[in-house]
Design a protein around this nucleic acid. Structure first.
Lengths: 246, 246
DNA sequence: CACACGATTTGATCCAGAGCAAGGACGGAT
DNA sequence: ATCCGTCCTTGCTCTGGATCAAATCGTGTG
Protein backbone atom coordinates (compact mmCIF):
# COMPACT_ATOMS: atom_id res chain seq x y z
CA UNK A 1 0.00 0.00 0.00
CA UNK A 2 1.49 3.31 -1.08
CA UNK A 3 2.15 5.74 1.73
CA UNK A 4 0.71 9.17 2.07
CA UNK A 5 3.41 11.74 1.53
CA UNK A 6 3.45 14.45 4.15
CA UNK A 7 5.03 17.31 2.27
CA UNK A 8 4.83 19.87 5.01
CA UNK A 9 4.48 20.07 8.75
CA UNK A 10 2.96 23.14 10.30
CA UNK A 11 6.33 24.79 10.46
CA UNK A 12 8.11 23.20 7.54
CA UNK A 13 6.40 23.88 4.27
CA UNK A 14 6.80 22.02 1.01
CA UNK A 15 9.04 24.68 -0.34
CA UNK A 16 11.55 23.85 2.38
CA UNK A 17 11.30 27.12 4.25
CA UNK A 18 11.95 27.02 7.93
CA UNK A 19 9.83 28.13 10.91
CA UNK A 20 9.71 31.90 11.28
CA UNK A 21 10.26 32.48 7.58
CA UNK A 22 7.43 33.79 5.47
CA UNK A 23 4.91 31.44 3.85
CA UNK A 24 5.60 29.23 0.93
CA UNK A 25 3.16 30.54 -1.67
CA UNK A 26 1.69 27.18 -2.60
CA UNK A 27 1.03 26.25 1.00
CA UNK A 28 -0.37 29.67 1.73
CA UNK A 29 -2.79 29.41 -1.18
CA UNK A 30 -3.87 25.99 0.04
CA UNK A 31 -4.31 27.03 3.64
CA UNK A 32 -6.28 30.04 2.51
CA UNK A 33 -8.50 27.81 0.39
CA UNK A 34 -9.36 25.72 3.43
CA UNK A 35 -9.99 28.85 5.46
CA UNK A 36 -12.28 30.11 2.74
CA UNK A 37 -14.12 26.79 2.75
CA UNK A 38 -14.62 27.28 6.48
CA UNK A 39 -15.88 30.79 5.85
CA UNK A 40 -13.02 32.50 7.64
CA UNK A 41 -9.92 34.50 7.01
CA UNK A 42 -8.36 33.67 10.34
CA UNK A 43 -5.49 31.90 8.71
CA UNK A 44 -3.01 31.76 11.58
CA UNK A 45 -5.10 29.61 13.89
CA UNK A 46 -5.81 27.09 11.22
CA UNK A 47 -2.32 27.20 9.82
CA UNK A 48 -0.87 26.29 13.18
CA UNK A 49 -2.42 22.83 12.92
CA UNK A 50 -2.48 22.10 9.18
CA UNK A 51 -0.28 19.41 7.59
CA UNK A 52 0.13 19.83 3.87
CA UNK A 53 -0.02 16.41 2.30
CA UNK A 54 0.12 14.79 -1.09
CA UNK A 55 -1.12 11.45 -2.41
CA UNK A 56 -0.30 9.74 -5.69
CA UNK A 57 -3.04 8.10 -7.73
CA UNK A 58 -4.54 5.05 -5.98
CA UNK A 59 -2.98 5.85 -2.61
CA UNK A 60 -5.51 4.90 0.03
CA UNK A 61 -5.34 7.36 2.88
CA UNK A 62 -8.57 6.60 4.73
CA UNK A 63 -9.24 2.97 5.60
CA UNK A 64 -12.78 1.94 6.44
CA UNK A 65 -12.99 0.70 10.04
CA UNK A 66 -9.74 2.26 11.22
CA UNK A 67 -9.61 4.80 13.99
CA UNK A 68 -10.50 8.24 12.64
CA UNK A 69 -7.39 10.21 13.52
CA UNK A 70 -7.40 12.82 10.80
CA UNK A 71 -9.69 15.25 9.07
CA UNK A 72 -8.80 16.14 5.48
CA UNK A 73 -9.61 18.93 3.12
CA UNK A 74 -8.93 18.41 -0.58
CA UNK A 75 -7.07 21.26 -2.26
CA UNK A 76 -6.18 19.65 -5.60
CA UNK A 77 -7.32 16.61 -7.52
CA UNK A 78 -10.18 14.18 -7.02
CA UNK A 79 -10.65 11.65 -4.22
CA UNK A 80 -13.00 8.68 -4.29
CA UNK A 81 -14.80 7.60 -1.12
CA UNK A 82 -16.06 4.05 -1.04
CA UNK A 83 -17.38 1.23 1.04
CA UNK A 84 -16.32 -2.36 0.43
CA UNK A 85 -18.39 -5.44 1.14
CA UNK A 86 -16.59 -8.51 2.43
CA UNK A 87 -16.84 -10.23 -0.96
CA UNK A 88 -15.24 -7.33 -2.81
CA UNK A 89 -18.32 -5.56 -4.10
CA UNK A 90 -17.69 -1.84 -3.91
CA UNK A 91 -19.96 1.18 -3.64
CA UNK A 92 -18.42 4.56 -4.25
CA UNK A 93 -20.34 6.93 -2.00
CA UNK A 94 -18.87 10.11 -3.40
CA UNK A 95 -16.08 11.99 -5.09
CA UNK A 96 -14.36 14.71 -3.08
CA UNK A 97 -13.01 17.67 -5.00
CA UNK A 98 -11.11 20.82 -4.05
CA UNK A 99 -12.85 22.53 -1.15
CA UNK A 100 -14.44 19.35 0.20
CA UNK A 101 -13.81 17.91 3.65
CA UNK A 102 -13.35 14.23 4.51
CA UNK A 103 -13.73 12.46 7.80
CA UNK A 104 -16.01 15.01 9.41
CA UNK A 105 -18.33 12.43 10.99
CA UNK A 106 -17.94 12.55 14.75
CA UNK A 107 -17.45 8.80 14.94
CA UNK A 108 -14.30 7.25 16.22
CA UNK A 109 -13.89 5.02 13.18
CA UNK A 110 -14.02 5.85 9.50
CA UNK A 111 -17.13 4.49 7.83
CA UNK A 112 -15.52 4.40 4.40
CA UNK A 113 -12.20 4.24 2.61
CA UNK A 114 -10.75 7.03 0.50
CA UNK A 115 -8.10 7.07 -2.17
CA UNK A 116 -6.73 9.38 -4.80
CA UNK A 117 -8.20 9.15 -8.30
CA UNK A 118 -5.33 11.19 -9.67
CA UNK A 119 -2.59 13.16 -7.95
CA UNK A 120 -4.13 14.85 -4.96
CA UNK A 121 -3.10 17.58 -2.55
CA UNK A 122 -4.69 17.59 0.87
CA UNK A 123 -4.65 19.55 4.08
CA UNK A 124 -4.62 17.15 6.98
CA UNK A 125 -5.55 17.95 10.57
CA UNK A 126 -5.23 15.83 13.66
CA UNK A 127 -8.76 15.16 14.78
CA UNK A 128 -7.97 16.48 18.26
CA UNK A 129 -6.59 19.74 16.91
CA UNK A 130 -9.48 20.13 14.51
CA UNK A 131 -12.06 19.48 17.23
CA UNK A 132 -10.43 22.03 19.49
CA UNK A 133 -10.47 24.61 16.75
CA UNK A 134 -14.10 23.93 15.94
CA UNK A 135 -15.15 23.95 19.58
CA UNK A 136 -13.43 27.29 20.09
CA UNK A 137 -15.04 28.79 16.98
CA UNK A 138 -18.81 28.19 16.81
CA UNK A 139 -19.00 29.72 13.33
CA UNK A 140 -16.63 26.99 12.09
CA UNK A 141 -18.92 24.42 13.64
CA UNK A 142 -21.87 26.02 11.92
CA UNK A 143 -20.04 25.91 8.60
CA UNK A 144 -19.18 22.25 9.09
CA UNK A 145 -22.76 21.51 9.95
CA UNK A 146 -23.75 23.16 6.68
CA UNK A 147 -21.28 20.90 4.89
CA UNK A 148 -22.66 17.84 6.60
CA UNK A 149 -26.28 18.66 5.82
CA UNK A 150 -25.37 19.47 2.23
CA UNK A 151 -23.64 16.12 1.90
CA UNK A 152 -26.70 14.49 3.37
CA UNK A 153 -28.87 16.12 0.72
CA UNK A 154 -26.49 14.84 -1.97
CA UNK A 155 -26.56 11.36 -0.46
CA UNK A 156 -30.35 11.32 -0.44
CA UNK A 157 -30.39 12.44 -4.04
CA UNK A 158 -27.99 9.61 -4.84
CA UNK A 159 -30.18 7.05 -3.04
CA UNK A 160 -33.03 8.13 -5.29
CA UNK A 161 -30.83 7.93 -8.36
CA UNK A 162 -29.61 4.44 -7.56
CA UNK A 163 -32.87 3.12 -6.18
CA UNK A 164 -35.33 4.34 -8.75
CA UNK A 165 -33.72 5.47 -12.00
CA UNK A 166 -32.59 3.72 -15.17
CA UNK A 167 -29.00 3.33 -16.30
CA UNK A 168 -29.34 6.09 -18.88
CA UNK A 169 -30.84 8.49 -16.33
CA UNK A 170 -28.08 7.70 -13.85
CA UNK A 171 -25.29 8.34 -16.33
CA UNK A 172 -26.88 11.56 -17.60
CA UNK A 173 -27.45 12.84 -14.06
CA UNK A 174 -23.86 11.98 -13.18
CA UNK A 175 -22.53 13.95 -16.14
CA UNK A 176 -24.65 16.99 -15.26
CA UNK A 177 -23.61 16.78 -11.60
CA UNK A 178 -19.93 16.55 -12.51
CA UNK A 179 -20.21 19.48 -14.83
CA UNK A 180 -21.80 21.61 -12.14
CA UNK A 181 -19.12 20.67 -9.63
CA UNK A 182 -16.33 21.58 -12.03
CA UNK A 183 -18.16 24.78 -12.96
CA UNK A 184 -18.02 25.91 -9.33
CA UNK A 185 -14.26 25.26 -9.28
CA UNK A 186 -13.11 26.20 -12.78
CA UNK A 187 -16.03 28.03 -14.32
CA UNK A 188 -18.52 26.69 -16.88
CA UNK A 189 -17.48 24.54 -19.85
CA UNK A 190 -19.12 22.23 -22.38
CA UNK A 191 -16.33 19.74 -21.71
CA UNK A 192 -16.99 17.66 -18.61
CA UNK A 193 -13.75 16.39 -17.10
CA UNK A 194 -14.01 12.77 -15.96
CA UNK A 195 -10.72 11.95 -14.25
CA UNK A 196 -12.11 8.75 -12.74
CA UNK A 197 -12.27 5.44 -14.60
CA UNK A 198 -15.41 3.80 -15.97
CA UNK A 199 -15.35 1.34 -13.11
CA UNK A 200 -15.52 4.21 -10.64
CA UNK A 201 -18.56 5.67 -12.36
CA UNK A 202 -20.11 2.21 -12.36
CA UNK A 203 -19.46 1.69 -8.65
CA UNK A 204 -20.84 5.15 -7.93
CA UNK A 205 -24.01 4.64 -9.96
CA UNK A 206 -24.73 1.07 -8.89
CA UNK A 207 -24.06 -0.25 -12.39
CA UNK A 208 -21.42 -2.38 -14.11
CA UNK A 209 -18.57 -1.03 -16.14
CA UNK A 210 -20.10 -2.52 -19.31
CA UNK A 211 -23.42 -0.78 -18.74
CA UNK A 212 -21.71 2.57 -18.17
CA UNK A 213 -19.67 2.13 -21.34
CA UNK A 214 -22.68 1.09 -23.40
CA UNK A 215 -24.78 3.95 -22.03
CA UNK A 216 -22.12 6.53 -22.85
CA UNK A 217 -21.81 5.02 -26.33
CA UNK A 218 -25.56 5.29 -26.78
CA UNK A 219 -25.58 8.95 -25.67
CA UNK A 220 -22.78 9.58 -28.16
CA UNK A 221 -24.57 7.70 -30.95
CA UNK A 222 -27.67 9.81 -30.26
CA UNK A 223 -25.57 12.94 -30.76
CA UNK A 224 -25.99 14.10 -27.16
CA UNK A 225 -22.34 13.88 -26.12
CA UNK A 226 -18.94 13.34 -27.67
CA UNK A 227 -16.62 10.95 -25.84
CA UNK A 228 -13.04 12.18 -25.55
CA UNK A 229 -10.22 10.84 -23.34
CA UNK A 230 -10.75 11.74 -19.66
CA UNK A 231 -13.84 13.76 -20.52
CA UNK A 232 -17.03 14.09 -22.56
CA UNK A 233 -18.14 17.10 -24.52
CA UNK A 234 -21.82 18.07 -24.33
CA UNK A 235 -23.36 18.46 -27.78
CA UNK A 236 -27.04 18.64 -26.90
CA UNK A 237 -27.52 20.42 -23.62
CA UNK A 238 -31.28 20.20 -23.71
CA UNK A 239 -31.61 16.48 -24.33
CA UNK A 240 -28.96 15.58 -21.76
CA UNK A 241 -30.75 17.68 -19.14
CA UNK A 242 -34.09 16.13 -20.10
CA UNK A 243 -32.74 12.62 -19.46
CA UNK A 244 -31.06 13.64 -16.23
CA UNK A 245 -34.03 15.57 -14.86
CA UNK A 246 -36.06 13.77 -12.22
CA UNK B 1 -54.51 16.87 1.67
CA UNK B 2 -55.12 16.30 5.36
CA UNK B 3 -54.02 19.12 7.61
CA UNK B 4 -51.52 18.85 10.37
CA UNK B 5 -53.29 19.17 13.69
CA UNK B 6 -51.62 21.57 16.05
CA UNK B 7 -52.73 20.22 19.36
CA UNK B 8 -50.97 22.73 21.51
CA UNK B 9 -49.27 26.08 21.27
CA UNK B 10 -46.53 26.88 23.70
CA UNK B 11 -49.01 28.14 26.22
CA UNK B 12 -52.03 25.99 25.42
CA UNK B 13 -51.27 22.34 25.85
CA UNK B 14 -53.18 19.37 24.50
CA UNK B 15 -54.74 18.70 27.85
CA UNK B 16 -56.50 22.03 27.57
CA UNK B 17 -54.72 23.71 30.46
CA UNK B 18 -54.28 27.44 30.24
CA UNK B 19 -51.17 29.66 30.38
CA UNK B 20 -49.75 29.95 33.85
CA UNK B 21 -51.09 26.56 34.89
CA UNK B 22 -48.70 23.71 35.45
CA UNK B 23 -47.61 21.47 32.57
CA UNK B 24 -49.80 18.98 30.90
CA UNK B 25 -48.01 15.72 31.67
CA UNK B 26 -48.05 14.40 28.12
CA UNK B 27 -46.60 17.60 26.70
CA UNK B 28 -44.04 17.78 29.45
CA UNK B 29 -42.89 14.24 28.74
CA UNK B 30 -42.63 15.06 25.04
CA UNK B 31 -40.75 18.30 25.54
CA UNK B 32 -38.38 16.53 27.87
CA UNK B 33 -37.79 13.83 25.28
CA UNK B 34 -36.75 16.43 22.74
CA UNK B 35 -34.51 18.10 25.31
CA UNK B 36 -32.93 14.75 26.06
CA UNK B 37 -32.37 14.19 22.34
CA UNK B 38 -30.59 17.53 22.28
CA UNK B 39 -28.50 16.47 25.25
CA UNK B 40 -29.91 19.08 27.58
CA UNK B 41 -32.23 19.51 30.51
CA UNK B 42 -32.83 23.19 29.89
CA UNK B 43 -36.48 22.60 29.30
CA UNK B 44 -37.87 26.14 29.70
CA UNK B 45 -35.96 27.66 26.78
CA UNK B 46 -37.01 24.94 24.41
CA UNK B 47 -40.52 24.76 25.75
CA UNK B 48 -41.07 28.45 25.05
CA UNK B 49 -40.87 27.76 21.30
CA UNK B 50 -42.25 24.22 20.93
CA UNK B 51 -45.59 23.50 19.25
CA UNK B 52 -47.00 20.10 20.12
CA UNK B 53 -48.49 18.64 17.00
CA UNK B 54 -50.21 15.51 15.81
CA UNK B 55 -50.65 13.92 12.40
CA UNK B 56 -52.97 11.13 11.35
CA UNK B 57 -51.73 8.30 9.15
CA UNK B 58 -50.85 9.50 5.63
CA UNK B 59 -50.89 13.19 6.54
CA UNK B 60 -48.11 14.86 4.59
CA UNK B 61 -46.56 17.58 6.71
CA UNK B 62 -43.33 18.26 4.81
CA UNK B 63 -43.64 18.94 1.08
CA UNK B 64 -40.56 18.56 -1.10
CA UNK B 65 -39.67 21.90 -2.67
CA UNK B 66 -41.65 24.08 -0.27
CA UNK B 67 -40.03 26.70 1.93
CA UNK B 68 -38.54 25.05 5.00
CA UNK B 69 -40.38 26.89 7.77
CA UNK B 70 -40.37 24.28 10.48
CA UNK B 71 -38.10 21.83 12.22
CA UNK B 72 -39.74 18.74 13.67
CA UNK B 73 -38.88 16.18 16.27
CA UNK B 74 -40.82 12.94 16.35
CA UNK B 75 -42.09 11.93 19.78
CA UNK B 76 -44.47 9.10 18.85
CA UNK B 77 -45.06 6.93 15.80
CA UNK B 78 -43.16 6.52 12.56
CA UNK B 79 -42.66 9.05 9.75
CA UNK B 80 -41.58 8.24 6.22
CA UNK B 81 -39.34 10.65 4.33
CA UNK B 82 -39.37 10.37 0.57
CA UNK B 83 -38.49 11.95 -2.72
CA UNK B 84 -40.80 11.78 -5.70
CA UNK B 85 -39.76 11.83 -9.34
CA UNK B 86 -41.96 13.70 -11.77
CA UNK B 87 -43.39 10.45 -13.16
CA UNK B 88 -44.43 9.19 -9.74
CA UNK B 89 -41.52 6.91 -8.94
CA UNK B 90 -40.80 7.23 -5.24
CA UNK B 91 -37.70 6.67 -3.14
CA UNK B 92 -38.13 6.54 0.62
CA UNK B 93 -34.95 7.99 2.03
CA UNK B 94 -35.62 7.09 5.62
CA UNK B 95 -38.01 6.41 8.44
CA UNK B 96 -38.00 8.83 11.36
CA UNK B 97 -38.83 7.41 14.76
CA UNK B 98 -39.20 8.89 18.25
CA UNK B 99 -36.17 11.03 19.05
CA UNK B 100 -35.36 11.81 15.41
CA UNK B 101 -35.31 15.31 13.92
CA UNK B 102 -36.63 16.33 10.52
CA UNK B 103 -35.84 19.35 8.42
CA UNK B 104 -32.45 20.05 9.95
CA UNK B 105 -30.75 20.82 6.64
CA UNK B 106 -29.85 24.48 6.51
CA UNK B 107 -31.46 24.91 3.12
CA UNK B 108 -34.37 27.19 2.54
CA UNK B 109 -36.43 24.51 0.84
CA UNK B 110 -37.22 20.98 1.92
CA UNK B 111 -35.45 18.38 -0.19
CA UNK B 112 -38.00 15.69 0.55
CA UNK B 113 -41.57 15.10 1.64
CA UNK B 114 -42.60 13.52 4.92
CA UNK B 115 -45.80 11.90 6.04
CA UNK B 116 -47.09 9.84 8.91
CA UNK B 117 -46.97 6.05 8.54
CA UNK B 118 -49.29 5.67 11.51
CA UNK B 119 -50.54 8.18 14.08
CA UNK B 120 -47.68 10.45 14.90
CA UNK B 121 -46.93 13.03 17.58
CA UNK B 122 -44.40 15.72 16.76
CA UNK B 123 -42.76 18.71 18.33
CA UNK B 124 -42.65 21.50 15.80
CA UNK B 125 -40.44 24.58 15.92
CA UNK B 126 -40.42 27.65 13.76
CA UNK B 127 -37.14 27.52 11.90
CA UNK B 128 -36.28 31.06 13.05
CA UNK B 129 -36.88 30.19 16.72
CA UNK B 130 -34.95 26.96 16.38
CA UNK B 131 -31.99 28.66 14.71
CA UNK B 132 -31.88 31.31 17.41
CA UNK B 133 -31.88 28.65 20.11
CA UNK B 134 -29.14 26.67 18.38
CA UNK B 135 -27.03 29.74 17.74
CA UNK B 136 -27.30 30.73 21.38
CA UNK B 137 -26.36 27.25 22.57
CA UNK B 138 -23.28 25.84 20.82
CA UNK B 139 -23.68 22.48 22.52
CA UNK B 140 -27.09 22.14 20.83
CA UNK B 141 -25.42 22.87 17.52
CA UNK B 142 -22.83 20.23 18.26
CA UNK B 143 -25.54 17.72 19.04
CA UNK B 144 -27.36 18.54 15.82
CA UNK B 145 -24.14 18.19 13.91
CA UNK B 146 -23.76 14.74 15.44
CA UNK B 147 -27.26 13.90 14.27
CA UNK B 148 -26.51 15.13 10.78
CA UNK B 149 -23.27 13.17 10.47
CA UNK B 150 -24.95 10.08 11.85
CA UNK B 151 -27.70 10.40 9.27
CA UNK B 152 -25.04 10.81 6.64
CA UNK B 153 -23.43 7.55 7.73
CA UNK B 154 -26.82 5.83 7.52
CA UNK B 155 -27.44 7.31 4.08
CA UNK B 156 -24.06 6.06 2.84
CA UNK B 157 -24.82 2.63 4.22
CA UNK B 158 -28.13 2.72 2.39
CA UNK B 159 -26.47 3.74 -0.89
CA UNK B 160 -24.29 0.66 -0.57
CA UNK B 161 -27.29 -1.50 0.24
CA UNK B 162 -29.29 -0.28 -2.75
CA UNK B 163 -26.38 -0.04 -5.16
CA UNK B 164 -24.61 -3.30 -4.54
CA UNK B 165 -26.68 -5.83 -2.66
CA UNK B 166 -29.29 -8.44 -3.65
CA UNK B 167 -32.98 -8.30 -2.78
CA UNK B 168 -32.57 -10.89 -0.03
CA UNK B 169 -29.64 -9.02 1.51
CA UNK B 170 -31.57 -5.76 1.41
CA UNK B 171 -34.61 -7.17 3.14
CA UNK B 172 -32.54 -8.97 5.80
CA UNK B 173 -30.49 -5.84 6.47
CA UNK B 174 -33.67 -3.80 6.73
CA UNK B 175 -35.16 -6.18 9.29
CA UNK B 176 -32.00 -6.10 11.40
CA UNK B 177 -31.81 -2.31 11.19
CA UNK B 178 -35.45 -1.93 12.21
CA UNK B 179 -34.97 -4.28 15.12
CA UNK B 180 -32.00 -2.29 16.37
CA UNK B 181 -33.89 0.99 16.11
CA UNK B 182 -36.84 -0.38 18.07
CA UNK B 183 -34.46 -1.91 20.59
CA UNK B 184 -33.06 1.52 21.36
CA UNK B 185 -36.58 2.85 21.94
CA UNK B 186 -38.42 -0.07 23.52
CA UNK B 187 -35.71 -2.55 24.47
CA UNK B 188 -34.75 -5.76 22.67
CA UNK B 189 -37.32 -8.16 21.25
CA UNK B 190 -37.43 -11.07 18.80
CA UNK B 191 -40.52 -9.46 17.25
CA UNK B 192 -39.65 -6.71 14.79
CA UNK B 193 -42.46 -4.20 14.47
CA UNK B 194 -43.08 -3.17 10.86
CA UNK B 195 -45.72 -0.43 10.97
CA UNK B 196 -45.06 0.57 7.36
CA UNK B 197 -46.58 -1.21 4.37
CA UNK B 198 -44.78 -3.51 1.96
CA UNK B 199 -44.74 -0.75 -0.61
CA UNK B 200 -42.86 1.49 1.81
CA UNK B 201 -40.22 -1.18 2.38
CA UNK B 202 -40.00 -1.62 -1.38
CA UNK B 203 -39.57 2.10 -2.01
CA UNK B 204 -36.98 2.27 0.75
CA UNK B 205 -34.98 -0.69 -0.54
CA UNK B 206 -35.16 0.15 -4.24
CA UNK B 207 -37.30 -2.93 -4.96
CA UNK B 208 -40.91 -3.62 -5.95
CA UNK B 209 -43.64 -4.65 -3.56
CA UNK B 210 -43.77 -8.10 -5.15
CA UNK B 211 -40.07 -8.69 -4.63
CA UNK B 212 -40.29 -7.64 -0.98
CA UNK B 213 -43.23 -9.96 -0.45
CA UNK B 214 -41.55 -12.88 -2.21
CA UNK B 215 -38.31 -12.33 -0.29
CA UNK B 216 -40.08 -12.27 3.06
CA UNK B 217 -41.96 -15.42 2.07
CA UNK B 218 -38.68 -17.08 1.18
CA UNK B 219 -37.11 -16.10 4.52
CA UNK B 220 -40.19 -17.53 6.24
CA UNK B 221 -40.10 -20.73 4.16
CA UNK B 222 -36.44 -21.13 5.10
CA UNK B 223 -37.42 -20.96 8.77
CA UNK B 224 -35.54 -17.73 9.40
CA UNK B 225 -38.52 -15.53 10.24
CA UNK B 226 -42.22 -15.87 10.96
CA UNK B 227 -44.48 -13.33 9.27
CA UNK B 228 -47.19 -11.90 11.54
CA UNK B 229 -49.40 -8.84 10.95
CA UNK B 230 -47.46 -5.56 11.28
CA UNK B 231 -44.32 -7.43 12.28
CA UNK B 232 -42.04 -10.40 11.79
CA UNK B 233 -40.68 -12.69 14.46
CA UNK B 234 -37.04 -13.73 14.18
CA UNK B 235 -36.63 -17.50 14.40
CA UNK B 236 -33.02 -17.89 13.30
CA UNK B 237 -30.97 -14.98 14.52
CA UNK B 238 -27.73 -16.31 13.12
CA UNK B 239 -28.84 -16.96 9.57
CA UNK B 240 -30.68 -13.64 9.33
CA UNK B 241 -27.57 -11.80 10.49
CA UNK B 242 -25.43 -13.79 8.05
CA UNK B 243 -27.58 -12.68 5.11
CA UNK B 244 -27.70 -9.08 6.31
CA UNK B 245 -23.99 -8.82 7.03
CA UNK B 246 -21.96 -6.97 4.45
C1' DC C 1 -73.69 -12.19 6.72
C1' DA C 2 -72.41 -10.52 2.28
C1' DC C 3 -69.89 -7.21 0.13
C1' DA C 4 -66.31 -3.97 -1.09
C1' DC C 5 -61.84 -2.31 -0.91
C1' DG C 6 -57.17 -2.21 0.02
C1' DA C 7 -53.02 -4.85 1.18
C1' DT C 8 -50.55 -8.85 0.37
C1' DT C 9 -49.25 -13.02 -1.74
C1' DT C 10 -48.51 -15.99 -5.58
C1' DG C 11 -47.96 -17.31 -10.43
C1' DA C 12 -46.35 -16.51 -15.16
C1' DT C 13 -43.78 -13.89 -18.33
C1' DC C 14 -40.55 -10.31 -19.69
C1' DC C 15 -36.53 -7.46 -20.01
C1' DA C 16 -32.86 -4.16 -18.37
C1' DG C 17 -28.84 -4.76 -16.96
C1' DA C 18 -25.41 -8.36 -15.30
C1' DG C 19 -21.94 -11.58 -16.61
C1' DC C 20 -18.75 -13.53 -19.76
C1' DA C 21 -15.69 -13.33 -23.59
C1' DA C 22 -13.18 -11.20 -27.21
C1' DG C 23 -11.32 -7.38 -29.42
C1' DG C 24 -9.45 -2.56 -29.70
C1' DA C 25 -6.95 1.55 -28.05
C1' DC C 26 -3.46 3.63 -25.64
C1' DG C 27 0.70 4.37 -22.97
C1' DG C 28 4.93 2.87 -20.89
C1' DA C 29 8.97 -0.12 -20.87
C1' DT C 30 12.56 -2.39 -23.50
C1' DA D 1 9.12 -0.88 -33.36
C1' DT D 2 7.44 -4.47 -30.35
C1' DC D 3 5.66 -6.18 -26.33
C1' DC D 4 2.71 -5.66 -22.11
C1' DG D 5 -0.62 -4.29 -19.16
C1' DT D 6 -4.58 -1.64 -18.32
C1' DC D 7 -8.65 0.40 -19.69
C1' DC D 8 -12.46 0.62 -22.62
C1' DT D 9 -15.73 -1.08 -25.94
C1' DT D 10 -18.67 -4.42 -28.08
C1' DG D 11 -21.21 -8.77 -28.89
C1' DC D 12 -23.64 -12.56 -26.89
C1' DT D 13 -26.12 -14.96 -23.37
C1' DC D 14 -28.22 -15.27 -18.97
C1' DT D 15 -30.81 -13.97 -14.91
C1' DG D 16 -32.62 -11.32 -10.89
C1' DG D 17 -35.96 -8.68 -10.27
C1' DA D 18 -39.69 -6.02 -12.80
C1' DT D 19 -44.08 -6.33 -14.72
C1' DC D 20 -48.56 -8.09 -15.51
C1' DA D 21 -52.32 -10.81 -13.78
C1' DA D 22 -54.90 -13.39 -10.42
C1' DA D 23 -56.00 -15.13 -6.26
C1' DT D 24 -56.23 -14.59 -1.10
C1' DC D 25 -56.50 -12.29 3.14
C1' DG D 26 -58.29 -8.68 6.36
C1' DT D 27 -61.07 -5.27 7.79
C1' DG D 28 -64.66 -2.21 7.86
C1' DT D 29 -69.55 -1.43 6.41
C1' DG D 30 -74.44 -1.57 5.06
Amino acid sequence: MTELIEIAHPRVHACGRQPGESYCDTCKVRSLAVCAALGSEELPELDRIVHHTRAEAKTTFIHQGETAESVFSVTEGVVRLYKLLSDGRRQIIGFAMPGDFLGLALHNRYGFSADAVDHVALCRFERRDFDNLVTAKPHFLRRLHEFATHELVIAQEQMTLIGRRSAEERVAAFLIAMRERWARIKGPSVTIQLPMQRIDMADYLGLTIETVSRTLTKLARDGIILIVPEAVRVLDERRLAAIARA
